[in-house]
Design a protein around this nucleic acid. Sequence first.
DNA 1: AAGGCGGGGAC
DNA 2: GTCCCAGCCTT
Length: 351
Amino acid sequence: MDLGSMKQFNIKLLEWYDCNARILPWRDDPSPYRVWISEIMLQQTRVDTVKPYFKRFMKAVPTIQELADISEDRLLKLWEGLGYYSRARNLKKAAAAIMQEFEGQIPSDIQSLKSLPGIGPYTSGAIASIAFGVKAPAIDGNVLRVMARITANKGDIASPRIKKEIEDLVSQILTVERAGDFNQALMELGATVCLPNGSPKCAECPVQALCKGHLQDIAAELPVKAKKKDRRIEQKTIFVIEYKGNIAIRQRANEGLLSSLWEFPNVEGHLSYEESKARLKEWGITSCEIMPMGTSKHIFTHLEWHMIGYFILVQSIQEYNNFIWATGEEIKKQYSIPTAFKAYSRLINDK
DNA sequence: AAGGCGGGGAC
DNA sequence: GTCCCAGCCTT
């Protein structure tokens, strides 16, 4: 792209953004803390999904100090249902680091930002440019798609080489004073006009005349991405166990999938009625009614859970050290249970 | 370079 | 069903 085209690109894009920017909760006051929280929530997560979580979080945890001091259970409860829960734990770690190493102030330079847990190449650029006006690129999935089409780049945008090409180009184009607006405009264009899956609305695009992909009539075929691998399937049996009005829950391991979130007792495989009874006996539950709750499927990015459930009404119990016994109300208020178990927790919420 | 890590919306 | 989302971290 020549210098004249870059200049035109800047002007057209920012003109368009000034008229078409969506009104978003984190845009009216782009303070570093608000930008940081919003950018972490927005990682691999749609704007409409993030909105209510962001508002609730800012009200519950308005300062870095409070974030550094928050309990893990309260933090995960605020994150419940949003997914990628390591983001929440990294947020707390980063808050502690900001208090200790940066005197309570979020740093403005890329290197310091990237030193914080959960902040990588994209998020460091986003915070630096939006909150501090630093002329740094912020290359996300939208930008990769938009720029691949603008330059008619047929390379795999997942490859580091192509990413670097696009990052270098955006860095060259990014000469305007409004670096934060420029980055947001590029993402906004990708989210609302230069749509994925072969559906770009080129007729509405402010930089259509500068787009090689459009001029060559291949915009819809770009960007090129490698095919995804198949998901692994796991069978599970879920037990919703009630005893004297309380439900059994337990905390997952603090690493790996859904780490340190809470769940109903469950085991690998699809257990029959008799197998379930034997397993419950191992857990000290000797006398109970067992009722089937039906099947449920939950799809993760890399994994599928195919579940069957049993509702267990316990009459007597030998020892119950294995689980926490909580009321439906306590679960709703205190314990973060991942969406994967929703089909079996609905019954509790209805109580 | 590749895989783990959630959940949901659009088609 | 498939794709992909304001990605990061570990191996």
